[in-house]
Design a protein around this nucleic acid. Structure first.
Length: 278
DNA sequence: ATCACGACCTGGAGGC
DNA sequence: TGCCTCCAGGTCGTGA
């Protein structure tokens, strides 16, 4: 579900729903572990958040940071099926509700995640990049941009194929499986290419395509295949505009050749065998 | 070190 | 109806 555009859509929606300014009065949890079967650090979350006002919601790659007016912030990753919802406190907990921040205005901020691949943790405010989950992340394509020179540098000598390369969060923070296919199609680069064989022109095309694809998806509120909704429970509209992802057998929007599906490192890739020749 | 692969977990879709 | 298999937006640990 949640790649950069979906996480950014959640971030914007949290801000729009006036999460900023609310004070956390209590933190509750399901007791179930999340990513890597690790327990949610409820005690640390309580210490960090209780009595603290939410001052901002920031994003780095696929991570959200709920900034509090104290020494620590709350770090959230949505995994595959995670959602952050703002609901009235009287709303019954949905199945798979794992962390709940009760706010002083009568609402809850709830982390719901059926598959429990997500993560909720505390992070030192102002030193977010020192958190183990964020330390290795590459630049954020929206906040910082991805210069072609950066891609070119990082691709040099790489034996892996180009799609796993742009999925590597240490290279670009935020591209996931849907948008990787879209980016390669837009850049006309074959997913069969080795990352190390990208030329300067190719790196430039990928850089431009990442920017374009992600911004377009953000403008559409992200892509909902199944689970993704924003903080108000609304799905994203970008699925209607996907050009190749999930469209095997459909004509390529550029050349009408049938879109093909292949599997790279266990993940589906969709591409046009005719116009992705680079 | 790099890379490919399976594991982690739940639920929905489709075949029989 | 039910049971089975396959598939899913992400990451992490393992072993070649």
């Amino acid at each position: 579900m949640p790649e950069l555009p979906e996480v950014e859509s959640v971030r914007r929606d949290l801000v729009r729903r006036r999460l900023r300014g609310a004070t956390v009065v209590r933190v509750r949890g399901s007791g179930k572990p999340l990513r890597m079967n690790k327990p949610v650090p409820m005690a640390a979350l309580g210490r960090a958040a209780r009595g603290r006002r939410i001052v901002d919601v920031k994003r780095l790659g696929k991570y959200l940071m709920i900034e509090l007016d104290g020494p620590a912030s709350v770090l959230v990753h949505l995994g595959m099926t995670g959602n952050l919802l703002v609901v009235p406190r009287r709303t019954p907990w949905a199945p798979h509700t794992h962390v709940v921040f009760e706010l002083d205005d009568g609402r809850d901020l709830r982390f719901v995640d059926p598959r429990r691949f997500g993560m909720v943790d505390t992070v030192a405010r102002g030193r977010e990049r020192e958190h183990v989950a964020l330390a290795g992340l590459g630049p954020d394509p929206i906040a910082e941009g991805i210069p072609a020179s950066h891609l070119w540098d990082r691709a040099r000598g790489k034996a892996c194929k180009v799609k796993p390369f742009i999925l590597d969060q240490r290279v670009v923070a935020g591209v996931g499986n849907i948008y990787a296919s879209e980016v390669l199609w837009l850049a006309r680069i074959s997913p069969r290419r080795k990352a190390g064989r990208l030329g300067a022109d190719d790196a430039r095309a990928v850089s431009v395509a990442i920017d374009h694809v992600l911004r377009f998806a953000i403008d559409n509120g992200g892509t909902t295949l199944r689970d993704f909704v924003d903080a108000g429970g609304e799905p994203g509209e970008n699925g209607e505009y996907l050009l190749v992802y999930g469209r095997d057998g459909h004509p390529c929007p550029r050349c009408r050749t049938k879109i093909r599906r292949q599997v790279d490192q266990g993940r589906a890739t969709y591409f046009c065998p005719t116009c992705q020749k680079r």
